[in-house]
């Protein structure tokens, strides 16, 4: 293994650590901070189950954003759907399925489920190009509309550009410059604890770019607005049930 390979191994471990510790620390801070008062934006569900469903509606469909701005919803939803699909397709790699491939076997689930899932699964790996398109849509809106331009910092553009870099290099790898898939797998599996480290595929600069961008994203995650991934589940205006007359809510610091 040459020093450059070691650099990428080190990068992966650093990114993993920063992400896990940073995000974990933030989750802990949110968890330990109390809600002294009941403040759901009403009308709100009156039960805990109803409130959970409300949060699910936000996380799965971006319902409030849909009411707020259709264009942002459209591009934003497309982008997140693409991210979800990409995460899924990367997650099955350990099962022996290549990221862009489609040879996952669902027949064990029975013919009915197989017929349902098979075409959806096959379709997902053609969705790749939608990701950069969605990100460009969001970038364009941010830069063109005077109101969003006014509220945007360098960091807001940078994160979108980072995602564009990740998505763009991913799509290019699939459709234009396919890397040496075996070497990539070898390297990535070598990152798992317990596996011997494998050299980085230095002959595939596009992959190295893709990889470096993803690691960068993981490292900025806990210090950026990407925290919304966890925060959406902590927002009291959405996750509190509206039951203050029925249940007395008390918080230690506020009940003297």
């Amino acid at each position: 293994m040459n020093p450059i390979s070691w650099f990428f191994v080190g990068l992966a471990y650093a990114a993993g650590a920063v992400f896990a510790l940073g995000f974990g620390w933030k989750l802990w801070i949110w968890l330990r901070t109390p809600n002294p008062l009941i403040i759901p934006t009403t009308p709100a569900p009156t039960t805990a189950g109803g409130a959970a469903a409300r949060v699910a509606g936000e996380a799965l469909f971006f319902k409030s954003l849909f009411r707020g701005n259709r264009w942002t919803w459209f591009f934003g939803y497309l982008m997140h759907l693409s991210i979800a699909v990409a995460l899924m397709r990367h997650a099955v790699v350990p099962l022996g399925v290549p990221v862009g491939g489609s040879d996952l076997d669902f027949t064990a689930l029975g013919p009915a489920l197989n017929d349902l899932i098979r075409p959806i699964w096959d379709a997902t790996f053609r969705l790749g190009p939608l990701f950069p398109i969605a990100v460009i849509g969001l970038l364009a809106r941010r830069a063109w509309v005077a109101r969003t331009r006014y509220i945007s910092y360098a960091a807001d553009y940078a994160i979108l550009l980072l995602l564009l870099g990740i998505g763009g290099s991913g799509v290019l790898m699939k459709y234009v410059w396919e890397p040496d898939v075996d070497a990539v797998h070898h390297f990535v599996f070598g990152l798992n604890p317990g596996h011997p480290f494998a050299p980085a595929p230095l002959g595939d600069p596009l992959f190295l770019f893709h990889f470096t961008m993803v690691m960068t994203l993981m490292m900025v995650f806990p210090f950026s607005k990407l925290l919304h991934v966890g925060g959406i589940f902590f927002s009291p205006t959405r996750n509190q049930p509206d039951n203050p007359r029925e249940v007395r809510h008390v918080t230690p610091w506020a009940s003297r």
Partner: peptide, 23 residues
């Protein structure tokens, strides 16, 4: 920040999406 989860979470998670800008 240590007393109000609303404040802590709200200051952390805005994505500057702009949905609120004309509301």
């Amino acid at each position: 920040l240590s007393k109000y989860r609303s404040l802590q979470v709200f200051l952390d998670i805005c994505v500057q999406c702009g949905s609120c800008t004309d509301k």
